[in-house]
Design a protein around this nucleic acid. Structure first.
Lengths: 336, 336
DNA sequence: AACACTGTGGCAACTGCTTGCCGCGCAGAG
DNA sequence: CTCTGCGCGGCAAGCAGTTGCCACAGTGTT
């Protein structure tokens, strides 16, 4: 019934428990023959170490927590999948926490888990920088889709991506864009706007920002209405969900896409190619974001606090996916 | 630096460690005043119990594992969200495992986690029944979207839902349906086909089954092609992903939906209302499925093995969502 | 030949909390 | 005025590992 312990193995193999322990958790500490003996006896007995007992003394839990700001956003699915994949590959367990866009919940859950995980993956965290820096002082932390100085992070490139996006719109003859921004606490929103403004200026286009809008389909209507007041012919939504909501509203208002206005999103969620018109969007390999984040976290957790290695701020390439929602600017004749 | 232990609290409060322990884990075992004293001192010291030490002796981990067959299927997101929500409400932690449609991975991960969780939520498990029954013998298990005798489960109603679906199609004048089935290991696939066949017979319609198909958008093309060979005017896809893939293929082959054929899916994933034409589908409150499943699991975990209460097989209502992909059968004149 | 070094294994003290059992004091029963 | 019974706090033995330190042997050094 009750599973065998290290003592059972030690007795059966005629060695001390410490030897059994080391054979598993510190293999090079015991000689080859001894290790093999122990391992063989252990597998005969069906022994497997108790993770809690292990965690109690060693303070390593082989578990990492991933906190996402809103689990409903399909964009996270791929990141989660990548993280889970990588964690599994290193025999780590992934705990999933949904912060529901609430800094309070985010904080609560983090503190609840702080004893039981090796580190945190914070995806699109809504916490203020101070909190993050403090947390990073006592735990291994990796940010996803947000950069904070002093904390390792993985983000999809926005600067170059937005440049490509603006270039694409410019090449279609658009001269004014509106950015429908996301939540105020969203680092990405700020980052995108900065990149858009810069690229627009370089391309000789005017750029305005409207919002903030909650990045869900349901809020696309408000965003679309606001966007139309700007007179811009190219509308850049904070993410695909918002863009899709805008497409619906524009259709309802009989504004033709892309004939009257062009619409783009961010993330390239899987519905982007299914909606109508299909959505031009700035995507990227989100799986790799999750994967890289776990990788960084494992490194950080393994490193003896305040390691020599510089804090890594990974920037993965993004990728412009042109679909049906962008077209030649109205009145214009396409490329000059 | 190092956080306070039960000993620190005991000393500061002038009681034994056992009293502190009980004040937290078994409150009615200590008198009111004592408990309050302990709790106050503990909070002053910033004490919080170490979950691993706790798990070591009590064998309760406050953690549950959720295993999903394919994390990419958006249909699971809502279930996951519901489960996470409910778990969080009971101060439980949710571990997420993606089985990647592989029974082997599913088995591996389950055995890896068997020591560290209180129970398993198996969503659309691909494991054979024997394995599930065996697992349920030693652990608390709740099935999601699959029924196995002797194991508690939560599923969305298929029988009544499929009847409504068939009735809907029949009322549009369709007389023959084709069901494009999912993976052979999928319990849902079998359950749906049985329900469809029964309802079709009752409605005087012919029903054929084609497949199996992997339920992803990419495999919709093959499903659509196969479906057209049957001559059926109503195509019921195993799920929304497959249905969407079929819509794409049908459009590519210039088959008009719903004028030439009607298409339906299952799950009502969020893209269903965004695709073109929007998809008629049998949905339901998936959040509640996840929530109820956790609830059942908590009960099962708390009950002293082999409890008196009968095994609960929850069936939550499904809901037919009629959208643009279903219409009057070609040649017919709608309702007779 | 004496010495230092290194690779291995064992001892035992921890880790932080739970829980069975004991005993004490007090209230109600006989 | 004893006898039970019960509520409540404490004692101490676990739970299943990890790890610092020591001892021992074999090897290499001077």
């Amino acid at each position: 019934m009750t599973s065998p312990t290290i003592y059972d193995v030690a007795r059966a193999a005629g060695v001390a428990t410490s030897t059994v322990s080391r054979a598993f958790s510190n293999p090079q500490r015991v000689s080859g023959p001894t290790r093999e003996l122990v391992v063989r006896v252990a597998s005969e007995l069906g022994y497997s170490p108790n993770p809690h007992a292990r965690a109690l003394t060693s303070r390593r839990t082989q578990t990492i927590a991933m906190v996402v700001s809103d689990i409903r956003n399909p964009h996270f699915f791929e990141i989660i999948r990548g993280a889970e994949l990588r964690a599994k590959a290193s025999a780590h367990t992934l705990v999933l926490v949904n912060a529901e866009e609430s800094p309070r919940i985010e904080r609560e859950q983090i503190s609840r888990l702080s004893r039981s995980v090796d580190g945190f993956l914070l995806a699109a965290s809504r916490l203020p920088e101070e909190d993050l820096v403090e947390l990073a002082g006592s735990h291994a932390v990796v940010m996803v889709n947000r950069q904070v100085t002093g904390i390792p992070s993985v983000v999809l490139d926005q600067r170059e991506g937005c440049r490509q996006l603006i270039t694409h719109l410019s090449s279609l003859g658009h001269t004014s864009v509106a950015y429908l921004t996301g939540p105020r606490e969203s680092w990405m929103a700020g980052s995108r706007w900065a990149a858009i403004r810069e690229a627009a200026a370089a391309a000789g286009m005017t750029a305005v920002r409207m919002g903030p809008f909650t990045p869900r389909v349901a809020h696309g209507a408000a965003a679309a209405d606001a966007a139309l007041t700007t007179g811009a012919t190219a509308l850049i939504a904070h993410n695909d969900l918002l863009a899709m909501g805008m497409l619906q509203r524009l259709a309802a208002r009989s504004v033709r896409v892309p004939d009257d206005v062009s619409v783009t999103g961010f993330d390239d969620i899987f519905a982007a190619e299914l909606c109508s018109p299909s959505l031009t969007t700035l995507g990227g390999a989100h799986v790799n974001v999750g994967r890289a984040a776990v990788e960084l976290l494992l490194e950080a957790a393994a490193a003896p606090r305040r390691a020599t290695t510089a804090v890594q701020q990974l920037v993965l390439p993004s990728q412009l996916v042109v679909r049906g929602s962008t077209g030649v600017a109205p009145g214009g004749h396409g490329p000059a």
